[in-house]
Each structure stands twice: as structure tokens, then as C-alpha cells.
Design a protein around this nucleic acid. Structure first.
Length: 425
RNA sequence: CGGGGUAUAGCGCAGUCUGGUAGCGCACUCGCUUUGGGAGCGAGUGGUCGUAAGUUCGAAUCUUACUACCCCGACCA
């Protein structure tokens, strides 16, 4: 795509309202703009990243055998009365009325809706297990939205709900989701920990959280430096532990020592058991022909929050450093003197066509501005690889490769292999 | 909701104390020259100073109320 055609309103200075790195950089890179506190518009660049993450999640969920659906954002009060949550939930449940004065809410989650679907459409154990997911906008009227997209009121979430005939089937799905989540976060390119968590208001048997380790995380987790062990300190606090004294002690699993870290919660998996199935009378006939209440699990990923989390873990003083798999573009071709120097313009377009045909997503910076502006913007928006076409092309048919990680090299213009090698590792 | 802070052009800011009809940098528009680290010169565009009321001959500036936004806390699948 041509830079000059895209709406990428980059900023030299971060707006006063932004406090943390990811929020500042998302605003400066022209990825998002605020509509109201905790409510944002995703501009083209931000949306590209969001979609990349969404697609990784979708591919892995589909790969696990889960099925995608799309549920309504506006939900009727009646369903929420069945689980008593219309009354139990606080003001974070945004209640609205339609023109007939009928009560609705903006969905903060979808257990009620999906359970209603299942109880009305699944009658036999033979149809189970089922794992149904969606990627959809949620609304929670948070007491205090903050940090831009990180803790918004409106946000994008992948939520899935499994329906199992018994506890062991639920356990199987739970483990499958746990493994699927690992694949997802690894593909996105994040450093994360799985920690035991407080299952909170939602209840249920047990739950684990996936945390991206980052300075600006809102959660405090105790991790072992020598194993997978991790636990949310909320859980320890409720057990009366003194968190400060834990740092440096041996890990309970005997491997490594405990460190206290900040984490951003990007995923949460729960075994719900019969909780919702019972209150919503959800059962099927089992092999003995008897009605059997279903076991449920639910599994969430904060899709939009992942964008911020990825930035919190990958940036420097110049801007964002996207992990390759979620970068809005793979390559930025910086054409110096584009549309002025015929040779350069033609070479840039030719390279653009070649790389695009090879299925790379390529940005061509054709703007009539100097090299400095172009490379600064590219560094800010975090494109992994820049290809510079300028004087050196005219003089001896050479282009320069500048990776966002700092690596540089001069190469013959027809040395596409070197460019491709960049994406091999 | 408790505590703290901010609000002047798209972004960053000055001007407010001491009232006199709004300014700087960047961005934007036009022209010419430029093009390998945020270009130069010249000419321009853009603001009912968050909203409302009050004091005053006169309010960005003083008074009162309100609103929005941010931070800490409480809250949080």
C-alpha cells in the first residue's frame, strides 16, 4: 500500500492524556483515537494489528476443533434473570431500555446467551462435547477505565464456552484449551506465564490466567525463575500470605526461586462445572436415557488488550518493535525522492510488486518528504524491515536493508534472497 | 465514589498571579529550492481560550456552578 494513501496520523509528541508506553505509542503511531474514556476508534494501522492477532487466535481455535459463532451484543434482561446476574452485577453491567421500555444490557460476557442456545438445540450426549467461540466486542462500564486500550470499557474479546457431558470430558477440553492458548501466545511472540488465579465472581472450580510479563501490568504475580510455576498474588493475599517476604524464597515446586513480577492478564480459562447449566436448566439425555446436567468451561482472551500488551513488551525509545507475526506490514520500502527520481521510483515500484506477489504485506513510503521523516515514522510504527532505495541505487544498484532491531546491510537490488532470509528466523 | 490534577488551533505549550480583545513550535495550504536521520526561504489557513452564569466600561485572566479528561485508591472473568 502507498503511505500517501493511508490514514496514518503519526504524532511527534504524545498527547497529555497518555501515561503508559503502549498508550502513548498507539496514539503517536496513529493506531487509535479516543471517542470517550475507555472507548476507542481503531484506525487502519491499529486495525491491521488487531486483525492479525484475531486471525492467529481464529486459526488455533479452529485447529482445536472449536466452532466460531457470533452472538448479539445487546442482550435481554430475561436471560440474565435466570442466572440472577441482572441483580448481582454492579454498574459495570450497562443496562439500557429499548423503545418499548423493555430491559436490555450491553453484553459484558456471553454465558447466558450461549447456554440458551445450547439448551434449546442440543438434546443428546452424542452431540457433545462442543466448544463454541466468538470474537466480539464486549462492554463493561468499568469504574475507572485507564491506560488507553489496556483497560477500556469497550474492548474486543475472544470468548469460548465448552459443553461437556461429565467432569473428565471437561478436564480434557480444559487441557486442550490450555495448550491452544500456549500456541496462540507463542505465535504472537509474547513472553508469558500461566498462573493459578482467583476464580472471582464467576465462581467455578478452578481457573488459570495467562499473563504477559511487563512493567506496566496491573496484576502482581509470583513466578519461579526455574520452572513454569506462577501464581496471582491476589490468591495468596486471600490466603493471608505476606507477598513482600516471598521474593527470593525457593519455589514450592522445588525448582528455582520466587520472583514477584507485574503481569498483564491476556487470557483466562475456567472450569465452571454445573454452575450455569443448573441455573439455566441445561441438560441432555445421557447413554442411560436420563437427563444429565452439562458441565461447562469458559475460556477468554483479551484480543484488543493483546495489542497493548505486545507493545509493552516490545518497544524502545524510537517506537514500537512489532513481533513479526503481528506487524501491520512486513516490509516498508523507503523511496527517497519518489516521483522525482525516475530510476528510484521505478525500482521501488518494481520491488514493491515483486514482494507483494510473494505474499508479503508491503508499505511503500512514496511521500514527498525527506529520508529522516520516513525512517522516523517507520521506526515509530514498528515495521520489522525497511528497504532504502536512494543514491546508492543510482550509483551502483544497491539498496540498504535496515531492520527494526538495528541490523543493517547494503545489498544488490536483485538480492531478494537476503530480504527473505530476514523472515526465516 | 474518596483524594489529586488538567482543560487556550490537529499535537505540544506560553499567556492567567497583576483584566485591555490571543501567541510560539510542530503539523496543514500555495510557490520555489530540496531529498540517506524529523529540510530551507517566502506567502497563507486555522481558536466563541471546556460549558453556563456572574462581577466589570472591558474577562483566556476575577467569582460561582457544571462538564470532560488524566493519575492514585476502591472496583474488575
Amino acid at each position: 500500500m502507498l503511505f500517501s494513501n493511508l490514514l496514518i496520523p503519526t504524532l511527534k509528541d504524545a498527547p497529555q492524556e497518555a501515561e503508559i508506553v503502549s498508550h502513548k505509542l498507539m496514539l503517536r503511531a496513529g493506531m487509535i483515537r479516543k471517542a470517550a474514556s475507555g472507548i476507542y476508534t481503531w484506525l487502519p494501522l491499529g486495525l491491521k494489528v488487531l486483525k492479525k492477532i484475531e486471525n492467529i487466535i481464529r486459526e488455533e481455535m479452529d485447529g482445536s476443533g472449536a466452532q466460531e459463532v457470533f452472538m448479539p451484543m445487546v442482550q435481554p434482561k430475561e436471560l440474565w434473570d435466570e442466572t440472577k446476574r441482572w441483580d448481582k452485577m454492579g454498574l459495570e453491567l450497562l443496562r439500557i431500555k429499548d423503545r418499548h421500555e423493555r430491559d436490555f444490557c450491553l453484553g459484558p460476557t456471553h454465558e447466558e446467551v450461549i447456554t440458551d442456545i445450547i439448551r434449546n438445540n442440543v438434546k443428546s450426549y452424542k452431540q457433545l462435547p462442543l466448544n463454541i467461540y466468538q470474537i466480539q466486542t464486549k462492554f463493561r462500564d468499568e469504574v475507572r477505565p485507564r491506560y488507553g486500550i489496556m483497560r477500556g470499557r469497550e474492548f474486543l474479546m475472544k470468548d469460548s464456552y465448552s459443553f461437556n457431558i461429565d467432569e473428565s470430558s471437561l478436564q480434557e477440553t480444559y487441557i486442550l484449551m490450555r495448550e491452544t492458548y500456549k500456541k496462540i501466545f507463542n505465535r504472537i511472540g509474547l513472553d508469558f506465564k500461566i498462573s493459578k488465579a482467583d476464580s472471582g465472581a464467576i465462581g467455578g472450580d478452578s481457573s488459570e490466567e495467562f499473563h504477559v510479563l511487563a512493567e506496566n501490568g496491573e496484576d502482581t504475580i509470583a513466578i519461579s525463575d526455574g520452572s513454569e510455576f506462577a501464581i496471582n498474588t491476589e490468591l495468596l493475599l486471600s490466603e493471608g500470605e505476606d507477598i513482600d517476604s516471598l521474593e527470593g524464597k525457593p519455589s514450592p515446586d522445588g525448582k528455582g526461586i520466587i520472583q514477584i513480577k507485574k503481569g498483564i492478564e491476556v487470557g483466562h480459562i475456567f472450569k465452571l462445572g454445573k454452575l450455569y447449566a443448573e441455573s439455566m436448566k441445561t441438560n441432555v439425555l445421557n447413554a442411560d436415557g436420563k437427563a444429565s446436567t452439562l458441565y461447562m468451561g469458559c475460556y477468554g482472551i483479551g484480543v484488543s488488550r493483546l495489542v497493548a500488551a505486545a507493545i509493552e513488551q516490545n518497544y524502545d525509545e524510537k517506537g514500537i518493535i512489532w513481533p513479526h507475526n503481528i506487524s501491520p506490514f512486513d516490509i516498508n520500502i523507503i523511496s527517497i525522492g519518489h516521483n522525482k527520481e525516475k530510476e528510484i521510483t521505478e525500482a521501488a515500484i518494481s520491488l514493491y510488486d515483486q514482494l507483494t506477489k510473494m505474499n508479503y504485506s508491503v508499505l511503500l513510503d512514496d511521500r514527498n518528504v525527506g529520508y529522516g521523516s520516513k525512517i522516523k515514522d517507520s521506526e515509530l510504527i514498528g515495521i520489522p524491515l525497511n528497504i532504502i532505495i536512494g543514491k546508492n541505487y543510482i550509483d551502483n544498484k544497491e539498496i540498504e536493508l535496515i531492520a527494526r532491531n538495528g541490523d543493517k546491510s547494503m545489498n544488490p537490488v536483485d538480492d531478494i534472497k537476503t530480504i527473505l532470509n530476514f523472515f526465516k528466523n
